[in-house]
Nucleic acid binder design. Structure first.
Length: 293
DNA sequence: CTTTGGGGTATAT
DNA sequence: ATATACCCCAAAG
């Protein structure tokens, strides 16, 4: 009896990418528990992140799905080279033909925005992909916002979400309860009577014994750093510049560019954007090489 | 414990 | 069938 299967939503992938941009690949646990992404990834495990990244890397790249023992002959040691770059670069930078002239960088931002509030799932009855974990996020938000020690019952959760979004699908309630059920099954949530409440990282569950760690809860939502003295656009340009200047480190550039592109889409949220852009900016500036090819 | 890099299986399309 | 999510494992740090 496996799980119903939850496809990763663009939002989650976005969070994953952003998380990687911030913490670097491999810091799955950090990404997962980072308050900044936890609202989207709280139902995923670090292993899930790792696996997802694997899938993304593979599919965005070559063609075939996970290269198994396929092509036994060609199974050169370099088959699985470059696990990075799951996202095709939609950005072009012209190295400014040598000699010190400033590089120009053209950013192509896809018009496809991840609209969180527009769901066209009109009348879908089953929780699949998109809707699925969108609800996880909502649930999480409701639970953490109205942080009630006793948890919230379905009604409370529904009404909370209804307040946030003018409209909810007709079958919303059903979808929601389904989601709740699953999260409980996954031990992400606890159900007491008919109320649900967040669970504190079960993670290694069995081991630690009964509530061994008080685990300091810090609702610290980091007010996104003080400020860069820059406006959003300036930051954007600055980041682009640094990216371009990192040419000689093609890999870093590719990474940064990739994230930059992703981040650009996120730019609706100035805060989020600013934050991540700053990370990228700093990374490039320090020439930090997080991963090697 | 977490990361890594595998392999395997279930499930959805 | 293929992709993809999720699971399991063992080694290494």
């Amino acid at each position: 009896m496996g799980n119903p299967k939850q496809k990763w939503t663009p939002e989650e992938e976005e969070a994953l990418r952003a998380g990687i941009a911030k913490h670097g690949t491999g810091k799955w646990k950090n990404i997962q528990r980072d308050p900044e992404f936890n609202h989207l990834l709280f139902s995923r495990s670090n292993i899930d992140l790792k696996d997802k990244w694997r899938n993304m890397s593979v599919s965005a790249n070559g063609q075939g799905p996970r290269e198994k023992s396929r092509t036994p002959k060609a199974k050169s040691s370099t088959t699985d080279a470059l696990p990075e770059t799951p996202t095709p670069l939609a950005i072009e930078y012209t190295p400014g033909s040598g000699s010190g002239s400033c590089s120009s960088l053209a950013v192509v931002v896809d018009p496809s925005s991840t609209d969180v509030l527009h769901m066209d799932d009109s009348s879908k009855c089953l929780l699949d992909g998109k809707t699925a974990s969108k609800y996880n996020g909502m649930i999480y938000e409701a639970l953490s916002t109205l942080n009630d020690p006793n948890g919230l019952d379905t009604n409370a959760i529904v009404s909370f979400i209804e307040k946030k979004q003018q409209e909810v699908p007709a079958n919303f309630r059903r979808l929601l309860t389904g989601r709740l059920r699953r999260l409980v099954a996954q031990e992400k949530l606890e159900k007491v009577q008919n109320c649900y409440r967040l669970r504190k990282e079960v993670a290694n569950g069995t081991k630690g014994g009964p509530t061994p760690k008080p685990k300091e809860i810090r609702p610290k939502i980091s007010p996104i750093n003080g400020h860069l003295g820059e406006t959003l656009e300036e930051a954007e340009i600055a980041a682009a510049y640094k990216v371009a200047e990192a040419e000689n480190k093609s890999f870093v550039a590719a990474e940064a560019v990739k994230e930059f592109e992703r981040v650009s889409r996120l730019a609706e949220e100035a805060e989020a954007f600013e934050h991540v852009a700053k990370e990228i900016y700093e990374r490039c500036w320090r020439g930090e090489v997080v991963m090697v090819q």
